[in-house]
Amino acid sequence: MSAYIIRRMLYAIPILIGINLITFVLFFVVNSPDDMALMQLGSKHTTELQIEDWKRERGYHLPLLYNAEQSGLAAVTETIFYQKSAKLFVFDFGSSDSGRDIGYDISQRMWPSLALAIPTLLVGLLVTITLALTIAFFRGTYIDYWAVIICVALISISSLFYIIGGQFLIGKLLKIVPISGFDTGLHALKFMILPVLIGIVGGIGSNTRWYRTIFLEEINKDYVRTARSKGLSEQMVLFKHVLRNALIPILTGVVVVLPLLFMGSLLTENFFGIPGLGSYTIDAINRQDFAIVRAMVFLGSVLYIIGLVLTDISYTLVDPRIRLS
């Protein structure tokens, strides 16, 4: 397995270079270094000289990808791409274009994102698996019929509606929790209840339907019939045999998103004023802060690759027949 993991990590290097290159090109197609300087300095009263000073100080005066004035390796290294991207591979994110330490900001902002994402994922999984198993148990009955209708209805509703509706109903009308906000330590608990609840409810429709399908597929297999014929209760069949075998596709979906929990949820974080990494990225895009955008895209890519490797590893843990090679 170690050889497999090392190989996958090595594969990741060209992928990450490619992602960096694409991000870089896309960003600079839309924003020139002059645009970035203007965004930071403001358009009122700013002179060409100030723009040049700003670019020179931050290394944006160099050519983008190839420096024709230099020879040999320097033609590649004396470019914005190399100067800004090489350090990312040792996780040195550097400073944002407004001068703040990106690594520090990420370390501060990942906790609110995790505080929102982890309970939403875990409780959401518990709720949706329980619901899906229950629906699978009552397959073909009115419960199954109505559950599917409700699930489709829940899928059809926009996530923005859940947020605004949740804030209106629970925060404004019932006044049970704060409408929005965040705080540190245990004081954060009361702010997390509503966004987590909304995250769970928002995921019920699609996840329950998906898990139901997985469970129904398993229920119709021979080993389930054998278990029943041995006289096992339906509860034992479902929770001991069906659930364990259905975990493989569920794990595929869950493990791959685990590392991405760091990256936060843009919409929820914005509406609840949660200072996570999702809003950090969007703020950076709005401010045309390439240093942060580049760092966050890189981090997202690394985490996604880690997620895929973890998924592969988890297969072997759940299903002993699978071997990584």
């Binding site: 605004i164 409408i179 509406f271 004023g273 200072p275």
Partner: peptide
């Protein structure tokens, strides 16, 4: 000063006296 990115939650909290 609290971070409040959206106008709807701000407005509702204003009505609640916060």
């Amino acid at each position: 000063f609290s971070l409040e990115k959206e106008s709807i939650p701000y407005w509702n909290k204003f009505l609640q006296g916060y």
